[in-house]
Amino acid sequence: MSRRCFRRPVHPRTPRQVAFDRPELNAILGLYGRMVVAGLWRDYALEFDADRAVFSAYKRTSERPEAQIVKCPALMRRQGAWMLVGQTGSVLKRGHELEPLLRLLERRLIKLVDA
């Protein structure tokens, strides 16, 4: 007799997939635009699953994503709903808010200018 994994019935008010809100997506795409202008990123991908939403930024389309911004509401009370994942797949930063994660990526845009 095989064991099956039965899913709980979905409550009509619970979303079937996790997505970015409009202000979150505006902040992420604003950073993406600045990174494109700087020549650091060229492409992006969005992935929406039942448990997480992922924004992946690529320098070249054929490579692994250079950075991934992950929203996972199930971890909201524990480690924070937001994760920044690097190119190797390691978690660079976790948090309860999106802005500190984006600031970590924006550091790459700061350049020293000679006076």
Rank of each mutant, 00 (worst) to 15 (best):
L25F: 10
R78K: 13
A38C: 04
M76D: 15
C72P: 01
Q68Y: 00
E99I: 08
R22H: 12
L75C: 07
P12E: 04
Y44G: 00
R52V: 06
L92C: 01
R108D: 13
L104R: 06
Y44N: 11
F55D: 06
K111P: 05
D51Y: 09
R8H: 10
Q17Y: 09
R94I: 02
A45T: 08
V113W: 05
V36A: 07
M83Q: 15
Q79D: 14
G33P: 00
I110T: 08
L101A: 01
A19R: 11
V91C: 14
P23K: 10
L40A: 11
Q87T: 07
Q68V: 04
L29D: 12
R78F: 09
W82T: 05
L112M: 12
Q79Y: 09
V113Y: 08
K59A: 15
T14A: 15
D51T: 14
A19P: 00
Y32D: 10
V85C: 09
A19L: 03
R22D: 13
G33S: 14
L109H: 06
H96V: 11
L40R: 10
R34Y: 00
E106L: 03
D49W: 09
Y44H: 14
P12F: 06
R34Q: 13
P9M: 05
R13M: 07
V70K: 09
A74R: 15
I110D: 00
R77Y: 07
A53T: 06
L31K: 03
R60I: 07
R34N: 04
E47P: 01
P9G: 01
A67N: 01
E99D: 14
P65K: 09
R34S: 09
D21Q: 13
V54M: 02
Q68N: 08
D114W: 10
I28T: 06
P9Y: 03
G89F: 09
F6T: 04
G80A: 10
R64A: 14
L31F: 03
P100Q: 05
R13S: 15
C72I: 04
A50P: 01
Q79L: 11
F48Y: 15
R77D: 11
Q87L: 05
V91M: 03
S56R: 14
C5S: 08
G80T: 02
S90H: 12
P15R: 09
Y32C: 02
H96A: 14
A27Q: 15
Y32R: 02
S90N: 11
R42F: 06
Q17G: 00
V91Q: 03
L98W: 04
A38N: 02
Y58Q: 08
L105R: 09
R64K: 14
K111V: 11
E106Q: 15
A67I: 06
I110F: 01
L84S: 06
